[in-house]
Design a protein around this nucleic acid. Sequence first.
DNA 1: GCCGGGGATGTGACTCCGTCACGTGGCCTG
DNA 2: CAGGCCACGTGACGGAGTCACATCCCCGGC
Lengths: 219, 219
Amino acid sequence: MSWTGGASELAALEPVARGVLDRLGPTEVPQGAVLFRPGETVKGYVIVLTGHVGVSLLGPNGRDILLYEVAPGQSCIQSTLGLLGGDDYSAEAVATAPTRLVLVPRPVFLELLDTSPAFRKVVFAAFAERMQAMMQLIETMSFMRVEARLAALILERAGEDGVLAITQAEIARAIGTAREVVSRRLDKLAQTGAIRTGRGEIRVRDRTALEALAASPAV
Amino acid sequence: MSWTGGASELAALEPVARGVLDRLGPTEVPQGAVLFRPGETVKGYVIVLTGHVGVSLLGPNGRDILLYEVAPGQSCIQSTLGLLGGDDYSAEAVATAPTRLVLVPRPVFLELLDTSPAFRKVVFAAFAERMQAMMQLIETMSFMRVEARLAALILERAGEDGVLAITQAEIARAIGTAREVVSRRLDKLAQTGAIRTGRGEIRVRDRTALEALAASPAV
DNA sequence: GCCGGGGATGTGACTCCGTCACGTGGCCTG
DNA sequence: CAGGCCACGTGACGGAGTCACATCCCCGGC
């Protein structure tokens, strides 16, 4: 019943606010489920309990760009835009893993915002965080070459063992480019010995080289 | 003294909140003044009373991208990120016209946020608006060719008489491209008769053609 | 064990765009 | 009236996105 006690920042909420939230039942969605699409009306404020959600912009030609990701305990700010301004979604959210989430209906959300300072804080913080992430995205997409973005992403997501399981298409969406470009760049990185590639997998061979590339002069 | 009574949305604030704000003295800054730079610590929440402020990301090679503009009555959300998360600025704000503004110090800002529902609403709304604008920016920069962005900008900013006074460099910053590209594109538009160009000035000749271009297939 | 089918990748051709490096011309001020 | 600054024009070049296919690998079904 009391899911608010979990790993999320919501544990710091006032008892009253937690009570209100606890009365909402969590929902389970399978991997690949679409939480919302562009043009849909906002139904409520989404809090992810477990799993993982990706929010992306869809391009007309099938290409899409990952705006940000929602980890457990975080909320999908995209909803907030609609809840506050009444606009529809302009992005798409997909569960990239089996996900358990809570949907806070608009009235409850607004009420909590008015009555719970802690809840406000959580919402604001999430807002600020997303905004930073999007500014970061604009910055890297505008000023860093694909090679650098790619190296940075590999370093960021590689495990301790230097291995990461990811497909080229996923990489492309995450760094805002096209899959073909990723293919060619990965190829070059492999040629220089910085990495080794496999189907759906990348192994870091030369972390230093990657770090140099990631920090390399923007343009 | 009571500048909150002006055209801004702040007029709807509770008397108490207005009182608090009214005690803060507005500041005048000349055109071209830099309100903050990347890396500086956030001093407070900025509300623009009159004038105009542009907030941009700076690239390493001198290029910069206009993130959004702040009109009278609006606030510069960039500050909020810092006030809530403690991060430094990552963008630059420049007054693009002589501007009168109010700087709300952090403690006052936080107190208002806690006590004034109306103030919260204003801040949240501004937040949502900026976020939308930035998503819009990512979308257009990623999925629309320069030609379309250019046409859209011209239509958006042209006066009733179809004239707009703007320099190519300003256009480039606003649509996130390089000045040289703007030069060439404007040239093509002029060749097809859609516009006429002059030093720091553009005249719309064929609005329909521009509209077609602006709405044209993304890629 | 063999066979499709579908997802993941590799490639070549082409165009658009961003960057560099200058050149030109107008306007303003000393 | 001479610099000098600012707005603009241009050619060359490489990076990046798009299209159209060609492979290739893995997994379930038979």
